[in-house]
Computed example of a mutant assay.
Amino acid sequence: MSQPSIMIKHVPKEDRPRERLIQYGGTHLSNSELLAILLGSGTKDESVMALANRVLMHFEGINLLKNATIEELTAIKGIGDAKGVVILAALELGKRINQFKPDERYVIRSPEDGADYVMEEMRQLNQEHFVVLFLDTKNQVIHRQTIFIGSLNASIVHPREVFREAVKRSAASIICVHNHPSGDPTPSREDIHVTKRLAESGKLVGIELLDHIVIGDRKFVSLKEKGYL
C-alpha cells in the first residue's frame, strides 16, 4: 500500500519551494520544485510536489515538456485547464526570453557569432529549417528569413530564392544556416553540394556566401572552416 502524499502545509516552511526560491534563488531549486511553484497546489489526495514529480515523469523530464500541448497536460490526472495554461505560458515566456535579441543590429565576425545568433531557437526544432542571414557591408544582420522547411535538397533550396531576397534587401553578403534535428551537426553530402552551388551563384550576382553553418544540439559545424567555401 502506497504512503499518503505529504501536503505542502506539513512541510517545514524553510523547505517549501516558494520560500526556498525567495531565500536562495531559482538556481537552487530542482525542476520539480520550480514546476510545483507554477502549479500552486496539488489535489485532495496528492501534494503539489508529488503532482509536479508525476508531470515530469510523464514527459520524461523537461526536454519533452517544453513541447507539451494543452491536451497532453490536461490528460494528466490533477492537471486541469488552469494549471495547464500556467505551464504553457511559462514555457512560452522562457522560449521568448531565450530568443530575444536587442534592437541594435547583430554583427557576425566569426562562425561562432553566426551560430550563437540562431542556436537557442534552431537547436530545438523538430524539422530541418533552412535560414538565410542577410548582412550589410559591416557584417551586420539586416534581415533573416526561413527559405525552406524540410530535408535539405539542392533541387528545393534553389539559389534563385536565396539571392532574389538578398538583392531585394541590398545585402552585401549572406550566411546560410540549417539545423539537424538529430542534434549531430556533421554535414551531409547534400549539405556540401548545396553550399558549393550557392557559393557559385553568389559569385555570379556579386553577393558573397560567407558561410553555411549546420546547427546541432548546442554544437555547430562551419562549412567554411571545413574548407568547402
Rank of each mutant, 00 (worst) to 15 (best):
S30F: 11
H143D: 08
M57A: 14
V157F: 06
M119W: 07
N63A: 06
E121A: 10
F148E: 01
T137P: 04
N67G: 02
L65P: 12
T69Q: 06
T43I: 10
R54G: 00
E128S: 11
E112Y: 14
V86G: 02
L21G: 06
L35V: 05
G84S: 02
R144Q: 07
A90S: 15
T74Y: 04
L125M: 12
D103E: 13
T146E: 08
A50P: 01
L133I: 03
L38N: 10
A52G: 00
I87T: 02
N139I: 08
E60P: 04
G40H: 03
D45C: 04
K101I: 13
K83V: 00
R20A: 02
L152K: 01
M57I: 07
N31C: 09
N98Q: 13
E72D: 14
G94R: 05
R123N: 05
L125K: 14
S47W: 08
E19I: 14
E46F: 08
N53R: 10
Y24G: 04
L56Q: 07
K77L: 15
I142G: 09
N31K: 13
G94P: 04
L38V: 15
I62Y: 06
H58D: 02
V55E: 02
M119K: 04
E33S: 01
I37E: 14
A50R: 07
Y106F: 14
R54P: 04
H28S: 13
K44V: 09
R54N: 12
L51D: 05
V118Q: 03
I62V: 15
T146F: 03
T69E: 12
R18L: 15
I147N: 07
Q23H: 15
G84K: 05
V86M: 05
E120T: 08
K44S: 15
L64E: 11
G150M: 07
E112N: 11
E92Q: 11
P111Y: 09
H129M: 01
V131A: 05
T27N: 09
T43H: 08
S155H: 02
S151P: 00
D81V: 09
L34G: 03
H143W: 09
D81A: 07
Y24N: 12
F100W: 11
G114E: 10
K44T: 15
T74S: 04
P159G: 06
G61N: 10
V55T: 00
F134K: 02
K66E: 12
Q127T: 14
N63T: 13
I22H: 11
V85C: 06
L34H: 06
A50H: 08
V48T: 12
R123P: 03
N126I: 15
G26M: 07
F130R: 05
I97W: 07
K101M: 13
E104W: 08
M119L: 09
G114C: 10
D113Q: 02
G78S: 09
G26H: 00
N153G: 01
